[in-house]
């Protein structure tokens, strides 16, 4: 459930952020209570409370006195913006380093990105024809 390596409150906070990002926790939707969290995951209630406090500080959650914790309006967009800001340094650069270390051709990477995300210059991809562009990519790779 939790890996006992990182502080558990960070893992809980990360889990809630992921739920907000994926949309499975909607804005103004109520989050499980500290007690529910504690009993469900068999953790100390103070640990769950600490995670909530961190998310309140970040503007992801807000508290309704006597009712509980709710997802803040705009939380999803805030998180997406935050992830975008960290993406290059934390995801893209290490990936490029790895690609470089194993001798991958940069052109292949760019091609693959276009396959998966769609190439704005390619009308088929822009129209969402993912299958078509993947097939094309394979043709060209040969």
């Amino acid at each position: 459930m939790f890996d006992d390596r990182r502080p558990i409150y960070r893992q809980i906070a990360e889990r809630i952020r992921a739920e907000v990002l994926s949309g499975s926790l909607g804005e103004d939707e109520q989050v499980m209570s500290t007690t529910q969290y504690a009993t469900h995951f068999r953790i100390n209630p103070a640990t769950a409370a600490k995670a909530f406090a961190e998310l309140v500080d970040e503007g992801v959650l807000y508290k309704r006195r006597g009712v509980g914790m709710f997802v803040a309006p705009g939380a999803r967009e805030t998180l997406r913006a935050h992830r975008r800001a960290r993406f290059v340094a934390e995801v893209l650069d290490p990936m490029i380093d790895e690609a470089d270390a194993i001798g991958l051709d940069p052109a292949h990477l760019v091609e693959r990105i276009h396959e998966r995300m769609g190439d704005p210059a390619d009308p088929r991809a822009a129209a969402g024809s993912v299958a078509g562009s993947v097939a094309d990519g394979r043709e060209e790779a040969r």
Binding site: F2, I8, R42, K50
Partner: peptide, 27 residues
């Protein structure tokens, strides 16, 4: 049981080795 604790106190050979929040200790 580590996840159940809010604080952890460790004693060794009769002496207090350390005390602190369980989460801080993990870090």
């Amino acid at each position: 049981v580590a996840a159940l604790f809010e604080t952890v106190t460790i004693i060794d050979r009769g002496r207090l080795l350390l005390q602190g929040s369980a989460d801080d200790l993990r870090a």
